[in-house]
Design a protein around this nucleic acid. Structure first.
Lengths: 220, 220
DNA sequence: CCTTGTGAATATGTTCACAGCA
DNA sequence: TGCTGTGAACATATTCACAAGG
């Protein structure tokens, strides 16, 4: 087995903000590919995304040389490479905590699978919800979490429970070995540094937008 | 009427990235307030959020001087000020397009109202969905959009339709005068520059996280 | 021609560190 | 003392602009 040599394309050297753009590139390139486009350029992709072509080229240059001068990028090839870089050339099991409206929506969503993810377990603390069916999954009680994570080697979890319950759920998830959490509860979690968290809260986006709007509310 | 004088706290001068953090501060301060905390400091808030205290102080300094040396910030007062800055000291009407699982979850969510937003209309293009009830709202057909927006002066919309339909929905929303769009469809919309868009796509977050995970997938 | 990949130049964002005040 | 608000220093990110290659 060859030791991986540290190179100009060393992973540790890639800024997180660059990693954050790769999924956007991949999403768009996949659309290009599915609509039959064979080749694209940094300029075309950039115009489509509202990003400068230089930025796209520099971002990609952290990982290798994927393009051809004068021609651009082979769409299918670049998709493959980005999938490899992001490690989504496979399907990751994801566990979901919370079987409310949002949990239902997430568990029923068909768009995860072909982008590298599959919700393989749904958990809820409520006796009423446990045992219920969502798609082809049965809602499990929280004390099944540990067994489930061991069996599936599941590293990723979604928290879709009310804000009051989210921190406790997060603590539990970490205890059973989850490494990355996507939190839909409108709070900031306190977590050990080796755990990744990202947040989705539509109100944060709304409030960002209203700053730029001229006021036009219903009531005070 | 007095003309607003351009000042050191000129709105145009505030970087967008700063605006983007204010809703997070507000969310956290509101939690502090609701748990009975009267006073906080940039250090306390920063530790809670994983942000440096200097950053918080500098961010706030764009808008005024809200703290007291030696003491810190009055939580309730700072909440009020942030609500005013973000223009969420009121309730904004929001229209929702898409009455699928996600649309249901959003329309039923109770957490919008006390943070400045209320979904006041749900629209869907499907004959089957139109007329259906979600909470206290009735799903309306798309051709009611125009009247609705005029009546409500609704500037904000959520797109919760499949990717294939999203661009057309967005075009329609712009035509009827919507100014800001929160798009849940996994695509980048092409829009005139005067329209604000933000995106929510959980897969983007997952793919960001898997970059840092060691691979452990179900299948290839 | 056209487009990539990349150093150099620029622009933006964050932190430091301290004066000033409760 | 303890904490804010803020210029100056530093760090990071983006864009420019061009050599090199198809």
């Amino acid at each position: 087995m060859t030791t991986q040599k540290s190179s100009a394309h060393d992973k540790a050297a890639v800024p997180d903000i660059v990693i954050g753009r790769l999924p956007i590139y991949l999403r768009t390139l996949t659309i290009f590919r599915n609509s039959g486009k064979d080749v694209t350029s940094s300029q075309e992709l950039g115009e489509y995304l509202g990003i400068s072509s230089a930025q796209i080229r520099k971002d990609l240059s952290h990982f290798g040389e994927f393009g051809k001068q004068g021609t651009g990028y082979n769409v299918a090839y670049l998709c493959k490479q980005l999938e490899k870089i992001l490690k989504v050339d496979c399907v990751w099991p994801v566990l979901l905590v919370g079987a409310g409206h949002l949990g239902h929506a997430l568990a029923s969503y068909e768009g995860f699978e072909n982008r590298g993810f599959r919700i393989t377990g749904v958990f809820d603390s409520s006796q009423e919800k446990v045992g219920g069916q969502i798609g082809n999954l049965v809602v499990q009680p929280m004390d099944e979490l540990n067994d489930f994570v061991s069996r599936q080697r599941c590293q990723i979890a979604i928290i879709a429970v009310p804000a009051e319950a989210a921190q406790n759920v997060a603590n539990l998830l970490i205890k059973v070995g989850v490494k990355s959490i996507l939190c839909y509860a409108p709070i900031t979690l306190t977590l050990p540094p080796h755990v990744q968290v990202e947040y989705i809260d539509p109100v944060i986006h709304f409030q960002h937008m209203t700053f730029y709007l001229s006021k036009g509310c219903i009531d005070s």
